[in-house]
Design a protein around this nucleic acid. Structure first.
Lengths: 252, 252
DNA sequence: ATCATAGTCGTCTGCCTGACGATAAACACT
DNA sequence: AGTGTTTATCGTCAGGCAGACGACTATGAT
């Protein structure tokens, strides 16, 4: 068929972000309150339109910086200090997902260390870190007992897919270090796994596994007692991005 | 920000397909010859525009049916007879990936049993199954010695991502059965793994692994000698879609 | 001093994998 | 009929890794 501009319908293309972090032993996602219709006043994932001259990953990195101030890393690079892991998640294009027009959203997944309070256009009340269980509890009640409305659009599905991606990916990669500060202890890394998977892991077996995998953790020489108890060695993420054999997620 | 149609640029959205199959002990992908500019005469992945009222997966299933006659399965369902596995792969949106205009392509991955000759608008010379190594050999030479031009657009990257997805996914899922006919032998399934991974596997250990995993294979009671040698039991894919512990891919 | 907390090193047992021997059942020759 | 070839299937054995858990260490809190 010849090139004919009228042969295809125009779409709007957006990026939506699933930004995950671990706070107070819980897996949390960044949510912003919608200020406009549709779904006005409801919580949603941060996101926005892709600009005319922008690549998808550029648009995602820009949105991430606008919402959190974080700089994004290359997805293939190991976790480094002061930035977030960012990767494409999936694309959502149901014709009815946005009642205004035909919008295709390329969702991205970002993993960040614990951050100070989020900002959304400088207005803190319009952005928050919320435990993913709370955001996904359809028609349930939040931590403080207030009723929680479901996320706007198909964002519950997107968030759910993002959480599942994170849960499975830390099994066989060093991605869990993206939730940690530049230097961290084995115990802090273990608590990341426990929060993301929602299980308890044996500290001794976990210690053996992560320290026994060559290239996964590099000791920095320092120690810390910020968790209480005996001082723990500090590590940074090593060059190994793949964990083989993988960390086994306990049965449900 | 208020709703303003001028606030976002229009995009064209397409689906491109990485259709993989195993033929003659080699992993092959479906390629179609472009009849128009740009990249006229070059090989490309099949694909087309998403229609105005179509979901992305619908568009991918439609394109798959148009190019191969295959019906697509639900990605979450186990492999069934007479259809192909179809799942979303990734989305490619570099501003310069199509010189004509801004096109975002949502690539999908399809896995199919060995098929009769492909058809592309009824013209067999414009569609073929080609070994993926041949399609990805940049500036190399094909099986018959003719020079091979790289795939059009960024399709080499898309194909490469699709092959990598297939290679990793058969490790921990029953997806390899999607390459097999409805009833198959353990040996045929092993040859799928060998073709996709490009390695040789021990027949005895492979047999122990797949028959020892509950719910993975269900014997049908029949036997066949279509591979020569001693008759082999016939199986169909069981309900288990996840392989735990995974099939280990030998070191490179 | 004693306790609570967290980190780190070992041990043991069972399961799974890789390597590989042995047998079985078909077909193709001679 | 016998012999070789091919493929399927069952068994055995050693090594590695994970789960369960004991023991000890080094901090801060009471």
């Amino acid at each position: 068929m010849p090139y004919d501009p009228s042969a295809f319908p125009p779409f709007a293309v957006t990026v939506d972000l699933v930004v995950l972090t671990v706070r107070r032993h819980a897996l949390c996602a960044l949510a912003v309150r919608r200020g406009e219709s549709p779904f006005q006043g409801r919580w949603a994932l941060p996101g926005g339109f892709v600009r005319a001259d922008e690549d998808l990953s550029q648009a995602a990195a820009r949105e991430l910086a606008e919402e959190t101030g974080l700089r994004a890393h290359d997805p293939d690079a190991p976790a480094q200090e002061g930035g977030a892991h960012l990767e494409q998640l999936a694309t959502y294009g149901d014709p009815k997902r946005d009642p205004r027009m035909r919008v295709v959203s390329v969702a991205h997944l970002a993993l960040a260390p614990d951050l100070p309070a989020p900002r959304a256009g400088g207005d803190a009340s319009n952005a928050r870190w919320a435990p993913v269980g709370e955001l996904l509890a359809q028609g349930g009640y939040g931590r403080d007992g207030e009723p929680v409305a479901p996320l706007a659009f198909d964002h519950a599905q997107i968030l759910s897919d993002g959480v599942e991606r994170a849960r499975s990916k830390i099994e066989y990669s060093s991605l869990a270090t993206a939730f940690c500060p530049p230097e961290f202890t084995v115990g802090e890394l273990r608590r990341v796994y426990e929060a993301v998977w929602g299980v308890a892991l044996d500290p001794r077996n976990f210690h053996r596994k992560v320290t026994g995998t060559p290239g996964f953790l590099v000791p920095t020489g320092g120690t810390t007692t910020r968790q209480g108890g005996r001082p723990a060695q500090l590590f940074r993420a090593g060059g190994a991005t793949l964990l083989n054999p993988p960390m086994l997620r306990p049965e449900v």
